[in-house]
Design a protein around this nucleic acid. Structure first.
Lengths: 144, 144
DNA sequence: TATTGTTATACTCTATAACTATA
DNA sequence: TATAGTTATAGAGTATAACAATA
């Protein structure tokens, strides 16, 4: 475990990252609302648009209790964006699968997420490369 | 308004930032929970620990409706972490002021927020300076 | 017996609208 | 009239515990 740093430079970087986080979150919620989705619904739909998943796996990805996913998928299913399908290999499992409309909504949601694309326009290609490498190193094994 | 970029490099940086945001949020909620606070309560307490504020100003800072702040401050007040004080200049206004215990809790909360301090340990001082400058440029006027 | 998904419950956060006390 | 804070209400997310179906 690395020693915590409290020098002014590190504290400023932490504060800057906090600002990025706040702005990203805010813009994500706004983008979701523009598609009449809550943040949680948008996150689940975005996840399923990459790959259909059993209910339990969704909870693991979102780091919440499986019982919560029931309601979120209920609401996405009522909107016609997601379907529950039985898993032929294990009849206990239900796969949550996006419908065509769900995939389309997920795609438009991604396109409307201008955050960090617009601010990144302030940087040159070389600077974006530098930023990418620094973030990769910061995040370590997770993105290796 | 800058043109949105969809080149692979920019998309990767956006995804990396998304990872940072998810991890930061998760760790913030955990740190709050360790002090028996919700995320919203921790954010309000952290804000007030810098500067006591009228209820309405808290809502503006958190970008939510003023009616929500009533309940959050109610719960912080019930815990003895915050007090409502009348504003002598305008008797409509109530100032939310952290108690000594509230200030102490806010300080310990900040100390336990190791996020972005620990991962930043992976970077040299020169790299942290570089990251700081890139984030400043990205965020533009907000942090000028 | 263990696991998957669900239900039931309680709490918190959120927005909206109506209310009160001041200004 | 306008503003600050509150209350009332309804919807959504969250964790916990108990349950049915299946493994």
């Amino acid at each position: 475990m690395a020693t915590s740093r409290t020098d002014p430079l590190t504290l400023e970087v932490v504060e800057l990252i906090g600002t990025v986080v706040a702005r990203y979150y805010e813009e994500y919620e706004q983008a979701a609302a523009q598609h009449a989705l809550t943040g949680a619904q948008a996150r689940v739909l975005g996840l399923l648009s990459l790959d259909p998943l059993p209910m339990r796996r969704i909870a693991q990805k979102l780091k919440c209790e499986p019982s919560n996913i029931t309601g979120i998928v209920d609401r996405l299913e009522a909107r016609g964006l997601v379907e529950r399908r039985p898993d032929p290999d294990d009849r206990r499992v239900k796969l949550a699968v996006p419908t065509d409309e769900g995939l389309d909504t997920a795609r438009r949601l991604r396109d409307s997420l201008d955050f960090a694309r617009e601010p990144l326009g302030e940087l040159t290609e070389g600077e974006r490369t530098l930023l990418r490498d620094l973030l990769r190193r910061m995040l370590g094994a997770d993105v290796a």
